[in-house]
Design a protein around this nucleic acid. Structure first.
Lengths: 140, 140
DNA sequence: ATTTCCGTTTACGTAAACGTCAATTAAAGC
DNA sequence: GCTTTAATTGACGTTTACGTAAACGGAAAT
């Protein structure tokens, strides 16, 4: 009998397996949400009987989903994005279409990045005003 | 009679006035949305009789609302943010609270900015792969 | 005068993204 | 064997952010 840590689902690191609750805890999302992402076609884990078994590829996809959410994209947009990541397109037309999509996505992201820079600077200004007001109130 | 451009609501640039449809067109949002933001307490334009009249301050607030939306914030979050911009807090406690809020907001924004950088780089990689595949398909 | 355009109000509808609850099933521990 | 415990499925509920339609009010153009 070999000594393995915690469970026997390791070995080839590319073949790690995860339960829904493990992923739920690691990424701090509810299992309900994870199943919902599956309903929406964003994940399709294997099954051992009825139980879902997630591969490390599934885990990466979940990571991408959550990052997309933090950036304010809808699940269907996220679906499009993820499909860009790991699909193996055969035709040139597909690739052209891909590149256009990438360009659109890039524009949105740059807009967001700009919005963030502006907002961060404004926050600096507001904070300075706050601190100024506070010292005034401290020493009247 | 003076020559004024378009309408007589100009002069002191800080006292410009706007109709709901002007703002709707300028920022490409529906009037319904603008009224909704008012229902949610994010805007409170003056009235001439029953009609809404927006000041340049209202216009700025609308701008902030839309920027917040692009960054994926909910309207209530946006409300909090905007209130930070133009409220005149009196007490030190308020200011402390403010600064904490600013710090939280800053963290979120920096997380988003990081997400964006990562995503942009990944897009670069995907696009390169695409272009590579295309040339391969071009010259078999 | 009446059509035409805004604008307003009220109300109902809806899509997205889950939350919540109930009923099962399966696996694990004692 | 029995009881927790974890996971599944299904159904319904909820919140957010508006869309859409109806019905009315005033002002302007013809």
């Amino acid at each position: 009998m070999l000594l393995v840590s915690e469970n026997a689902r390791q070995g080839d690191p590319a073949q790690e397996q995860f339960s829904i609750s493990e992923l739920s805890q690691e990424f701090d999302v509810t299992t309900r949400a994870i199943r919902f992402y599956e309903d929406e076609g964003l994940l399709e884990p294997h099954r051992q009987g009825r139980q879902r078994v997630y591969s490390s590829r599934d885990r990466v996809r979940l990571k991408l989903i959550l990052r997309g959410k933090r950036l304010g994209f809808s699940l269907s947009e996220i679906g499009d994005i993820i499909d860009m990541y790991d699909s193996e397109p055969g035709e040139v037309g597909q690739l052209q279409y891909f590149i256009e999509k990438i360009s659109v996505r890039r524009k949105t992201l740059k807009q967001q990045r700009n919005d963030i820079e502006v907002t961060l600077k404004e926050l600096d200004g507001i904070e300075k005003q706050c601190r100024k007001s506070m010292t005034h109130l401290d020493q009247p």
